[in-house]
Design a binder for these strands. Structure first.
Length: 465
RNA sequence: GGUACUCUGGCAGAACGGUUAUGCGUGGGCCUGCAAAGCCUAUACAAGGGGGUUCGACUCCCUCGGGUACCUCCA
């Protein structure tokens, strides 16, 4: 598989001959997660699902940054402890992302549970004379890492002249960043240099190397993390291990809202809770995968609506597949499905082009629906199409809502009565039954020889769009 | 101001130095008791502006312009 690497600005081949090790920078847990977080995490979720589907083992680590100024400030504001804030938002994180059908990572290490590793990490940097202690904390000396700026393509002297850097006289160089911050404000931990807490970037370096070892396969996150977060991680980590930190740097583009930046000051932040509530996980996932991961995507109701229409087609396809009962068989279904399946895989192999993979998925949907429309979808074709359809659903993380056996029987009974009434030309009565099924979100599809039903996913936004 | 990314038809979005992308939308049709769903079919002077390289550029180069992100809060 080829992936765009931010560091070398070129496509790199992912080595899948062994277990693939991925580290994804997760969230700082001080507030609700939003659609931007969702996109990044869904992209990595699908990457992981795809690799696993190919039989490749994946060690997928995603951290929680649970100690940070923002958490402390929030705690102060709400008059609770930092731990209460982070625990609360970790809980919300899981409810949001379970709702989005994101598979749980192999592990979710937390900064506060790895203080020892962080301290060891810092000590080694001090020993190597790459970090130093000053009045306010322990700092990484950027001048000791000549390659600083290589990820973000920034020049050190240009950064130094940047007007927005606040001059801190206690640092040797304005670019030096904190590994450890001295503080008396709880929570704090003891360290050989003084009581305090870790700086922002150090936890990812310490935890990724601890869980994945040196030179792991993919390090990812949102584009906005390239600088300073990932730049600093590289500086720390490569000073620490004297080896390449990560093989491929994979960055996911931002989500804009109607062309504007999503920000609290603009009041246009779309929380996962909100989008999930209105659109459901399938539509959100389709939306998040509708563009190439490295490019920005724009959130708009119009685009979500487009994905809703597509999702309805996929639902129809599913119910056509499970209700097929005729013996007909079309000649070239096997070769068509094989080609579509290939297209799907090739799209993902080639820089993880989820948009192209989606078009392959929808051409499979179309193929099945076309056969069904012509009354030609036989059970032998279903044997070919359904496993592939389900494989794609699994990789994309899409799911058809389940329906109980009792409900199925009830529906079948209602359809039977309606059939009887239709045969007797009591259409008004028959239509009443159809209407009451519609109210249960059951859609009837009248084929020539039989009537089948589908359970439409209940999507709030469907009504107001 | 600097750096990176980006600019394709009403919208979304690919590939490719020379061939219809595709999807949504829109028009028409099929199916139906009527619908719905689905299917079929038609539909686009498309390439941000201007130069250049080339037999030929959406694709390569230059330039101008727009957008987004980052420049120690950020997925």
């Amino acid at each position: 598989m080829k992936l765009q690497d931010t560091l070398t600005n070129s496509e790199k081949t992912l080595d899948t001959s062994h277990k693939v090790r991925i580290y994804l920078c997760g969230v700082t847990v001080y507030d609700e997660s939003h659609i931007g977080h969702a996109r990044t995490i869904i992209v990595f979720d699908v990457l992981r699902r795809y690799l696993e589907n190919r039989g490749i083992e994946v060690n997928f680590i995603q951290n929680f940054t649970d100690i940070d100024d923002k958490i402390i400030n929030r705690a102060k504001l709400e008059n609770v402890t930092a731990d209460e804030i982070s625990s609360k938002y970790i809980e919300h994180y899981f409810s949001d992302f379970d709702g989005l059908n994101v598979k749980r990572a192999t592990d979710y290490p937390k900064a506060t549970e790895h203080i020892k590793d962080i301290l060891d990490f810092i000590q080694k940097l001090i020993n190597k004379d790459i970090a130093y202690t000053s009045k306010n904390g322990v700092y990484f000396s950027v001048s000791k890492f000549p390659e600083y700026g290589k990820l973000s393509k920034k020049k050190i002297d240009e950064l130094q002249s940047g007007a927005r850097i606040e001059i801190d006289e206690t640092k040797k160089d304005p670019l030096d960043f904190a590994l450890w911050k001295f503080s008396d404000v709880e929570p704090t931990w003891d360290s050989p240099w003084g009581k305090g807490r870790p700086g922002w970037h150090i936890e990812c370096s310490a935890m990724s190397i601890k869980y994945l070892g040196e030179n792991f396969d993919i390090h990812g996150g949102g584009r906005d993390l390239i600088f300073p977060h990932h730049e600093n991680e590289i500086a720390q980590s490569e000073s620490f291990v004297d080896n390449q930190f990560a093989k491929i740097w994979m960055h996911v583009g931002m989500v804009t809202i109607n062309g504007e930046k999503m920000s609290k000051s603009l009041g246009n932040v779309k929380s996962i809770k909100y989008v999930l509530d209105n659109w459901g996980s399938n539509i959100i996932r389709l939306f998040c995968l509708s563009g190439h991961y490295s490019k920005p995507i724009d959130y708009s109701e119009e685009l979500l609506k487009e994905n809703l229409i597509k999702w309805r087609q996929a639902e129809t396809c599913y119910y056509e597949l499970i209700h097929s009962n005729n013996e007909k068989q079309s000649d070239n279904v096997i070769s068509i499905v094989k080609k579509i399946s290939n297209d799907f895989d090739e799209a993902l192999e080639g820089d993880f082009n989820t948009h192209l993979a989606l078009s392959a998925f929808f051409s499979l949907v179309k193929e099945a629906n076309r056969l069904a429309a012509d009354e030609n979808l036989g059970i032998n074709d279903v044997k070919t199409i359904k496993p592939e359809f389900e494989r794609m659903l699994e990789i994309l993380g899409l799911s058809i809502p389940k329906i109980s056996q009792e409900q199925k029987q009830e529906i079948d009974k209602m359809i039977e009565s309606r059939e009887r009434l239709r045969n007797e030309k009591h259409f008004a009565e028959a239509d009443k039954i159809r209407a009451s099924l519609n109210e249960m979100n059951i859609e009837l599809i009248d084929h020539k020889e039989k009537t089948i039903w589908m359970k439409k996913e209940n999507i709030k936004a469907d009504i107001w769009t």
